[in-house]
Simulated assay, not measured.
Amino acid sequence: MQKSENEKTTLNLKLDNRSYPIHIEPGSINSESLRQLVQQSDAGNCVIITDHHLYDIYSDWLKMLKVIVVKAGESSKDICVYESVLEQMIKLGISRTGTIIAFGGGVIGDLAGFVAATYMRGIDFYQIPTSLLAMVDSSIGGKVAVNLSSGKNLVGTFYQPKAVYIDPLLLKTLDKREWANGMAEVLKYAIGFDREFFDELSKYTLTDIMADEQLLIPIIARCCKIKIDVVEQDEKDMGIRNLLNFGHTIGHAIEAHYNYEKYLHGEGIAIGMAIKAKLAVDSGLLNEAEMERILEVISKYDLPIKLSDMMTKEEVDQLLSYIIHDKKRQVEEVEWITFKKLGQLESKPEKIETFIEQISKELLKA
């Protein structure tokens, strides 16, 4: 993987007559453009939405603005938390010309984006992702949502930010498990969209990437470019963008089954990708060596390739019940994302009963 010669990269996501920049720059949290955004909010019509963990770390910076703080973790992507944030927005006096800054990982980006999309019929918002997962994936493309007890991201919309500011230095506060959580989405792009990228990532370890900023920045940029290309072709997830959900249907079911406590998002996705690779061998779409290599690289980045505990048939049925409510279901079918080959995916409709039966067999083997 080439070293980064220029520390600052600006990419643009273009949608019809709309476009917004994605700035990748170490230290951009203190950049002139971000300072100008903060200064424009002096009238008190801007609010940062963040979590309590980040507020404790960055309180000196955050106190410049009005701040709404929620609990860290997936539990804050809840319809009740969403309602609470709306009420706080009203109490803070944020008007229809107001601005929201989402300062956090994927949970905060989804929650704050959905608040922005719906508060007074929609106000501007900016993304400042603080996790690797959010930097390479969820902060880009405008998918915003909250969860219901029935499943993940069941209430949401497509609402693009005005800009995304990616500051890799913010990752310094993450622990190793959170780094691995983000690498699951990086591996999704490599395994599903870019064989050369996969081959390059196979040379490194999680420790290598955590320690080398000049290695990290090109990885972030490469993922962002793939995401931009897909979203520009299919903003509303009606076709090719569905391929970005590789491993997610299974992963979301795993997260929900364990009440978003046992497995992080990326861990669930990693297991989902591993299951898809195994099923691709059964279908003749991957050979055994390719499947083993995928599992090896996922494991190399400190991610699981199977559930940690053996499951009974009843437990598997309970887990897979979440797929019935999955947002990608179409009547009695789901979109089955699988391989054309390593580095290239395809999507085709599959009867939900067949889909669940195949996944059930793999989970019971684990």
Rank of each mutant, 00 (worst) to 15 (best):
E185C: 10
E185N: 07
L187Y: 05
L187D: 05
L187C: 06
A190K: 00
I191Y: 05
I191Q: 01
I191W: 03
I191A: 06
G192I: 07
G192N: 07
F193E: 03
F193M: 07
F193H: 09
F193W: 05
R195H: 15
E196N: 13
E196H: 14
F197P: 01
F197I: 06
F197E: 02
F198D: 06
D199W: 01
D199A: 12
L201T: 08
L201G: 08
S202C: 05
Y204H: 14
Y204K: 15
T205S: 15
L206R: 03
L206Y: 09
T207A: 15
T207H: 14
D208V: 08
D208L: 11
I209V: 15
M210T: 13
A211Y: 09
A211S: 15
E213N: 11
L215S: 09
L216D: 06
L216N: 03
L216Q: 04
I217D: 00
P218F: 04
I219M: 00
I219A: 02
C223S: 10
C223G: 02
C223E: 02
I226R: 03
I226F: 02
I226N: 02
K227D: 01
I228Y: 00
I228H: 00
V230A: 04
V230Q: 00
E232Q: 12
E232D: 02
Q233P: 00
Q233V: 01
D234M: 02
D234F: 04
K236Q: 05
K236D: 02
M238A: 12
G239P: 00
R241H: 05
R241G: 01
N242M: 14
N242I: 11
L243E: 11
N245A: 10
F246C: 03
F246Y: 13
H248G: 00
T249Q: 08
I250P: 04
I250G: 08
H252W: 08
A253H: 04
A256W: 01
A256V: 12
Y258R: 14
Y258I: 11
N259P: 07
N259M: 13
Y260V: 09
K262W: 11
Y263R: 07
Y263F: 14
Y263M: 08
L264G: 13
L264P: 04
E267H: 12
E267L: 11
E267P: 06
G268C: 13
A270S: 13
A270D: 09
G272Y: 04
G272K: 08
G272C: 11
M273Y: 07
A274V: 08
A274S: 14
I275N: 10
K276Y: 10
A277V: 09
K278R: 15
L279C: 07
L279S: 05
A280W: 03
V281L: 10
V281I: 11
D282W: 04
S283H: 13
G284N: 09
L285R: 14
L285H: 14
L286A: 07
E290H: 03
E290K: 02
E292H: 12
E292G: 07
E292F: 10
R293N: 14
R293T: 10
I294G: 00
I294T: 04
I294K: 03
L295I: 06
L295R: 02
L295N: 06
E296L: 06
V297G: 00
V297K: 03
V297M: 07
I298E: 00
I298Q: 01
I298P: 00
S299E: 11
S299W: 08
K300N: 15
